[in-house]
Write a protein that binds this DNA or RNA. Structure first.
Lengths: 335, 335
DNA sequence: TTCGTATTTTTGCGCGCGTAAAATTTTTGT
DNA sequence: ACAAAAATTTTACGCGCGCAAAAATACGAA
């Protein structure tokens, strides 16, 4: 940078100032730099920058399971927004594991990020580790909330998801039973169950929850086996099944197909199946899945917006705000 | 580090040496450091390390489209292997775009990585940019090959995929026609088409390729629309369709379902559909997809192994080697 | 024109570490 | 037990830059 500054006829700190904010130097100075820049194509050393900056331009994005297209999709959107805002996003994948999540937080700490967007594992998270992290680093939680952690939470309104699917299913046929994992990894699942029970009572219908066994993140397989078990033992007390999430529903559809059960709302169909999330593949299941869609764009947008505001105010938020976006019902052929 | 060295009764460079390789200091010295380490939990500053090291421990992993579960899966495996080898993997996503891919390479260059594992976009890649990059940074290509670029290529043997599916389909029923995009993004697609034609000729059957329109990475939707078009116009001249890849096949299955066509090999089925890749979701399609599976583990393992060897030898390879792993046929219900 | 203020540029310093060469200690051979 | 060789530790220096304070310059009003 010393050389380059000399070549552009300025001192090094002036050039440094330019790279931190091109608007912060006089127009004539900027022109000098930009001319020299074209001729010598110099680029500042990232490591030296980050070592010396009080706050880096790094932003961490932590998702629980990147192989899940839902997280791949939202991570992609968030990444793009951070990039546009002039930050350097680092996507980290917890692989569904507690140790990996804690390790990710450690690695992030070393990157001295200006802020972090964290979608925690949920039940499997090391709450103590996350709380300590949030105390040190400005953090916005998204997707799943942990009580009081982080400076803010941005996510989807689980009640809105379930209300819309239950309303639709009740209006168009038999009230649904609810299909879920007995020990859901994600806190959203519990909220959805509660919302289901409340919604059914509002409709004057008797709620019925089918809880299946299974741990880990292989939801499709868990759903498939759970559906086989439920169908064999007659646990589905109605002809309408509302799944906690789309990945379970994909498993249910596979099980129904394997048993020759026709799914859909037409005549000749044995079962209606609906779900929540609008997983990127739910358009292509057979039949296509009726589901409640996340407002991906709003969640990603507001999460990033909140983090940027948090960074500007020096990592302090007057009060922890939880922002929830409602779902959009997507009616397809399955229910 | 100065302080910490004093606390452990040593000089700073000795401690530095320890962190670069704990084996490189005397046992007594190491014990001193490790005792102090427990009491004060000091950690070296990554930025300062990387700034001064001749070669960093960073490794870049570039994939064309991370929202595709196939790439999510293989990136995950590669990431884990790099991590175990003591490197710091950085996953970068080209989002299916030429500019993003070039930008990723630029960002990587700035990280001064010891090596890079690159799965290029293929047809959309900026070949000049990639070649320049490979000259500067030790690079191993994987998944899709670019002529002569990088120090080595590790991928799957497309001929093996197609040979096995074609053999199986011919043996068990009518020889297949081949369903693909007219302008595939990925060079593997072309190899698969050629392998299909050769395999059909070996079987004494007439090859028939159905090429559909569509650009981008929304393969399921492209496959769905293409299948509708082909079914309407009678382009499928046989009752057996071999898709170039699973994501197209998922679209074909959706189209068949929408038209009430039963897919499978049993009586009463109108169409057999098979494919290649063993996409993580192909187990859960309706019917489950018969496909040829990548040897994910071998490809990921050998790619990392090759890169580590390349790094050890200072980025030079006597000769560019291309290593291909054969497929495993996975027979499910669709064909 | 001149002075005062606001903006811009420069001076001087230090960040936290890697590394080559020098100094020291330990090991080996006799 | 002593010198030479090998292994280890220390000295000394620099990496490439951000940042605070000082100096210089630009701009507007009297």
């Amino acid at each position: 940078m010393e050389e380059f500054a000399a070549l552009s006829g300025l001192s090094r700190p002036t050039v440094s100032k330019y790279f931190n904010d091109p608007e912060s130097v006089r127009a004539t100075t900027r022109r000098k730099i930009e001319e020299a820049l074209e001729r010598f194509d110099y680029r500042p050393n990232i490591f030296a920058i980050n070592q010396n900056r009080r706050l880096t331009k790094n932003v961490g994005i932590v998702v629980p399971f990147l192989a899940d297209p839902f997280f791949a999709e939202i991570a992609r959107k968030i990444e793009a927004l951070c990039y546009e805002a002039g930050f350097r996003p680092f996507i980290m994948n917890s692989h569904g594991g507690r140790e990996q999540e804690s390790e990710n937080l450690d690695s992030l700490r070393a990157l001295k990020p200006a802020g972090v967007l964290l979608a925690p594992l949920g039940r499997a998270s090391d709450l103590g580790a996350i709380e300590r992290f949030c105390r040190d680093v400005p953090t916005v939680l998204f997707d799943s909330n942990l009580d009081g952690m982080g400076a803010a939470f941005v996510g989807s309104d689980n009640a809105s998801f379930v209300d819309q699917t239950v309303d639709y299913l009740c209006r168009s046929g038999e009230p649904p039973c609810f299909f879920e994992m007995r020990r859901p990894a994600n806190p959203n699942a519990n909220k959805r169950r509660h919302a289901y029970i409340a919604a059914m009572e509002r409709h004057g219908a008797a709620p019925h929850v089918v809880s299946i066994e299974g741990d880990g993140w292989a939801f499709e397989e868990i759903g498939r086996q759970g559906a086989h078990a439920a169908l064999s033992s007659g646990d589905f007390t109605t002809s309408t099944v509302l799944c906690s999430n789309d990945r379970l529903a994909i498993g249910v559809l596979a099980a129904c197909y394997e048993r020759g059960l026709r799914v859909g709302r037409g005549p000749g169909s044995a079962l209606r199946v609906a779900s929540h999330d609008d997983h990127p593949f739910s358009r292509f299941t057979c039949p296509a899945l009726t589901t409640a869609a996340h407002d991906y764009t709003s969640v990603a947008g507001y999460a990033v917006e909140t983090l940027l505001k948090l960074i500007e105010t020096g990592g302090q938020m007057p009060t922890r705000r939880e922002t929830l976006f409602p779902a959009n019902l997507v009616v397809r052929a399955s229910a």
